[in-house]
Write a protein that binds this DNA or RNA. Structure first.
Lengths: 235, 235
DNA sequence: TGAGCTATAATGTGATCACAATTATACGTA
DNA sequence: TACGTATAATTGTGATCACATTATAGCTCA
């Protein structure tokens, strides 16, 4: 188990009123989501506490929470590490995203009013800007934002936490996907989704979201290529 | 927020080698899953620690984990309570179960060998026995067992933790469902699933699981009835 | 040179304590 | 009797410490 590879926590400023646990949680969540920590890297309570200049207590709580969300993995001994990826697991995560998110999208349809639609359009335009600017990190964030806005339109939403668990597990790879396909794939599928919403066609929306996800992760359909990426730590 | 209603933790024996945190986690998880704690009931760290005769530390960790799994809800002040149910939320949870579990079942199909099939048959027979004995708690447990065996047949399974999160949120109600419909619904749908497996028909299996879930929760399709049950704390 | 053992260091777990914020209770006033 | 305030109790948060377990590094011996 890797114990030395660098960790770029890039800690965001700690807003007042925010507990230390929340702050650590955000740090680690971002680091995992955007691939700042290599799979297999061991995380120790005291090590992280020292990096962040706080006591071990909040780190313990944040680690446990992230393990519960499948963002990190706790071994039998209590040791915590970033889970390793395999091609088969990647495929399962991808298909799980399609199943759950297309469901969530269809369920949100009846609740999408013009305000939500405008919010989606605005986010889509922001993605365009980020694309032209070549800001890959921003594209990833805004793409997630687009999906989130869609799903939480449903006020009785219960699947967002499940979806975010999948995002966390796929996080580093989604960034890579954006990198490879940034030029063309995003806009089209989002437009397709927006059109479906305008027609109030839940099924068409479901299909658009499914295609969006599949397109976004299509770069990794070849197990050999994916294994290469994993082994070479390109992530 | 309810602060006084009784809590039946019914703590299981603490096996050696099991950490205090794991033990508390199991206690609370079971209590939530089987409706031993009323929705809205406030849970305090010190209170639970005293009930279980341990220090507050393991309780804190267990509570945070259960909140991450949506089994409990953490308010802005850090207070923890059992989430309240609404008819709309119930419906969303039910449909989310159908979407995810039927997906997981179809994905498991290629991996179901005769060993797994026999395990499923054995569990199904145990459910029969529990039904004739009228042991409702056992029926609920075995029914979950049946589903779990099916899903984990897929060695690359990534949805089980998501599914269990939904089970936790629906827990108390599933027991009630079993109570109302114990006489007839379970066996038929499980037989349907077993037949689909024998024919190696993933789509038929998917439909059987979807029907099984819908039948099991059909008792609560009427919002008024459901509201009555919630308000009257029959759970 | 390399496999196995030992001593040392590092780590997770759990307990206790201090503090600030929140909540509950009791009191006094209108 | 109802309401607002002040006091007291409760609670979550975070830090520090002790302990048992596990991992690591160094050494010995074949």
């Amino acid at each position: 188990m890797d114990k030395k590879s660098p960790i770029n926590l890039n800690p965001p400023p700690r807003n007042e009123g925010m507990t230390a646990t929340q702050w650590v949680y955000n740090c680690l969540r971002n680091a995992v989501m955007y691939g700042q920590i290599l799979p297999g890297r061991a995380l120790t309570i005291r090590g992280l506490a020292q990096m962040l200049g706080i006591s071990p207590m909040p780190v313990r709580e944040a680690l446990r929470q992230l393990c519960a969300e499948q963002a990190l993995e706790m071994l039998g001994t209590g040791r915590v590490m970033v889970p390793k990826m395999t091609p088969m697991k990647f495929n399962e995560l991808c298909e799980a995203r399609v199943a759950i998110e297309s469901h969530a999208a269809a369920r949100a349809m009846p609740y999408i009013d013009s305000a939500v639609l405008n919010q989606l359009r605005r986010t889509d335009r922001s993605i365009d800007c980020a694309q032209q600017a070549g800001d890959l990190g921003q594209i990833t964030i805004l793409n997630q934002e687009f999906h989130r806005i869609l799903y939480v339109a449903n006020p009785h939403q219960v699947t967002l936490s499940l979806i975010e668990s999948l995002w966390l597990q796929l996080g580093p790879f989604m960034r890579l996907a954006t990198e490879q396909l940034a030029d063309y794939y995003l806009v089209d599928r989002h437009q397709e989704a927006l059109t479906a919403i305008e027609k109030r066609d839940a099924y068409a929306l479901q299909l658009a979201i499914a295609s969006d996800i599949r397109d976004g992760l299509a770069f990794a359909t070849d197990p050999d290529l994916l294994n290469n990426l994993i082994d070479n730590h390109i992530l």
